[in-house]
Write a protein that binds this DNA or RNA. Structure first.
Length: 221
DNA sequence: GATTGATCATTT
DNA sequence: AAATGATCAATC
């Protein structure tokens, strides 16, 4: 797939995909369809990246850097309600003194997101799930304020060496949870007394209530 | 190990 | 039923 040259071109391409099942799209692209996602958790996201011409692979950048757009697929039920939280980015755990919201990975990734809802419960085979209407989103002032509050609160705890006390319950719209291959994956962080410790890598995730509201806001317009 | 893509599976 | 904590694959 070639890369879309503009945001309208990207939106148009995404709109053409709405209504297709994932197996239809996969067949067009010559991609095999897994029987379930247990061992292919990123399959849906990678399929849509391919279909829309996103930069492939594991680059630490937006999916469409020249357009300033991040692509995210989000599983939703029949009523358009998100079935999962949405991963945003890995949380920095060291050298975070002076890091400001304005310069954070979270803000930068979420500044402009092309959301592709994918309709289908967990029990529905991946190939039978249906691509929904895309939505290009930029946080409202209120949404950004909520994100900022949670981010600042969580980052303060990390900087204070209290990462081991942070649970997914912190934050109204943004939460910090493990983001790792397994429970043996460790990375460096700061302990309660300022000493280096090894801990599970963490990531920022958007809670489903937040993504549900943002989807609703747009589909009501 | 860290980054990309996320969902699974158990607990609440 | 929903949310939290744990995990899977590919790539560099």
């Amino acid at each position: 797939m070639s890369r879309p040259a503009s945001i309208p071109a990207l939106q148009h391409r995404a709109e053409q995909l709405a209504g297709l099942s994932l197996s239809e799209l996969a067949h067009q692209l010559g991609i095999p369809v897994p029987p379930h996602l247990r061992r292919d958790k990123g399959w849906v996201g990678q399929l849509l990246e391919l279909a829309l011409g996103a930069s492939a692979g594991s680059k630490p950048e937006q999916d469409f850097p020249e357009l300033g757009v991040e692509l995210k697929t989000i599983p939703v039920d029949g009523r358009g309600k998100p079935l999962e939280t949405t991963f945003v980015s890995v949380a920095p755990l060291t050298d975070i003194g002076g890091l400001r919201w304005e310069d954070s990975n979270v803000r930068n990734k979420l500044s402009r997101v092309l959301w592709i809802p994918v309709l289908g419960e967990r029990s529905l085979a991946p190939g039978d799930r249906i691509i929904g209407q895309p939505l290009l989103w930029t946080p409202s002032a209120q949404e950004e304020q909520l994100l900022r509050q949670d981010w600042e609160e969580i980052m303060e705890l990390i900087s204070l060496g209290q990462i081991q006390d942070i649970t997914a319950r912190h934050g109204q719209v943004l939460q910090l949870r493990p983001k790792a291959a397994n429970n043996r994956a460790l990375t460096e962080a700061v302990g309660r007394h300022g000493q280096p410790i090894m801990t599970l890598p963490r990531g920022f995730y958007l809670k489903t209530g937040f993504t549900a509201a943002l989807l609703t806001r747009h589909f009501m317009l």
